[in-house]
Amino acid sequence: MAKLEMTVNGRKVSRVVDDRTLLAHFLREDMQLTGTHVGCDTSQCGACVVHVDGKAVKSCTMLAAQASGAQVTTIEGLSSGADLHPVQRAFNEHHGLQCGFCTTGMIMASVDIIARHGGDLDEATVRAELEGNICRCTGYHNIVKAVLAANAEMHGASQAAE
């Protein structure tokens, strides 16, 4: 068994889990943070993306034990109360989600993309950067639009989406 000490969404947690427990399952089953989803078993769909020490990683491709000592942020920790993160808001305003299953990973990935590019984003870059996230509902059109809109809002970029 592995002893974990980590900070999840700003809260310190300490747990003992089976060594083979994936971070995704730890979050879903031990922490009841079911917003992190598992959509494949080959580490490609990205429904499980969370931030570990500020970086977007696939929680289905990391043991919970590997994340011990880390700061983990899940979709549930991205905003609180009535407030929404600009990316969450943009997904709503631009209809960037349908069934919602890939959405949480998509939003966590998008937050990371925007942070990494420091406001310098265009459609082609967003599409290339979403390589690790699969959506079956939206055809990505409105996801791309939402990411660009959130980027414009967060970085005050003059060029609006679309």
Binding site: R28, Q32, L33, Q88, L97, T104
Partner: peptide
Amino acid sequence: VARKEDRRFITGAGRYTDDMV
């Protein structure tokens, strides 16, 4: 109209079958 149901999905509060315990 932007969707009413989005709020639960964008905050991770959607409830899918595997979320049921």
